[in-house]
C-alpha cells in the first residue's frame, strides 16, 4: 500500500527522534521536575495537615454536640496505629463512643489522619495526649489486633472532664500538635509547618493555631 502523501513536500528530516534529541527533552523534563516537585510536595503536605486538623476539630465538635444532645458522656479515643506507608505505631486515628450504662456505642466510623500526619504525644507540643489516661481496644477496620489509645470524656454539659490547665510545665494549656512525620519537631522547636489544636476544658471548645494561615 502506497502512502498517500503529496510529493510536493520534500522529506527534510529522518523519521523519529535521534537519541540526542530524546536525551535533551528528557533532561529538560528532569530539570523542570526537580525545580517544581519540592514546592508541590510542600503544598500537598500542608494541605494534608490542614485537612487532618479539620477532621480532628470536627470529630471533637461532633463528640461535644452528641454529648449535649443525648445527655450522655462521650469518650473520644486517640489510637496508636500503624499506617499503610509507615509501620511504626503513632497517634493517627480517633474514634468517639457514647458511654451508656452497660455498653459503649460508637459514633460513626473512626477518623483517620492523612498519610504521614501524626498527633504529637509529648510536651510541650502534645500536653493533651501526654496527660490523658489510656487503654487498648480493637478498631473495626483493623481486624482482631488491639491497639492502645488515650481518651478524654466530654460531659453532658459540653465541658471536658479535665482540670483547667495541664500538669505540664507548671500549668500549660491542653493542646495537641499535628505534624508531618517527614518534618518532625526538633527539641522544643516546632516544625515550620504544623497545626496546633487547643482544647478549652471549661467549654469543650477548640482553638486552632496554624502559622502562615490567614
Amino acid at each position: 500500500m502506497k502512502p498517500r502523501r503529496s510529493p510536493s513536500h520534500p522529506r527534510v528530516h529522518p523519521d523519529g527522534f535521534s537519541l540526542v534529541e530524546l536525551l535533551t527533552v528528557m533532561a529538560l523534563l528532569a530539570v523542570l521536575a526537580v525545580l517544581v516537585l519540592p514546592s508541590i510536595r510542600g503544598v500537598s503536605s500542608s494541605t494534608e495537615l490542614t485537612i487532618s486538623a479539620a477532621s480532628v476539630v470536627d470529630s471533637l465538635n461532633l463528640a461535644r454536640q452528641t454529648a449535649l444532645s443525648v445527655n450522655r458522656p462521650v469518650e473520644v479515643r486517640f489510637y496508636q496505629v500503624p499506617s499503610s506507608t509507615d509501620t511504626t505505631e503513632a497517634f493517627r486515628a480517633m474514634a468517639s463512643y457514647v458511654l451508656g450504662n452497660n455498653q459503649t456505642n460508637p459514633i460513626g466510623r473512626p477518623v483517620w489522619l492523612r498519610s504521614g500526619v501524626v498527633l504529637s504525644d509529648t510536651a510541650p507540643f502534645g500536653t493533651l495526649l501526654e496527660g490523658l489516661p489510656g487503654g487498648s481496644s480493637t478498631l473495626p477496620s483493623l481486624g482482631p489486633t488491639t491497639y492502645s489509645y488515650r481518651s478524654l470524656i466530654f460531659r453532658p454539659d459540653g465541658s471536658v472532664a479535665l482540670p483547667n490547665t495541664s500538669p505540664s510545665d507548671g500549668g500549660d494549656t491542653w493542646h495537641v500538635m499535628l505534624f508531618n512525620t517527614s518534618r518532625p519537631p526538633t527539641g522544643s522547636t516546632p516544625p515550620a509547618n504544623h497545626v496546633t489544636i487547643q482544647l478549652l476544658p471549661e467549654t469543650g471548645r477548640t482553638r486552632v493555631f496554624q502559622p502562615g494561615a490567614r
Binding site: 502512502p3 510529493p7 513536500h9 528530516h13 523519521d15 527522534f17 527533552v25
Partner: peptide
Amino acid sequence: PRITAFTL
C-alpha cells in the same frame, strides 16, 4: 513520501 515525526 514525507515522514511525519516531530522536530525538536
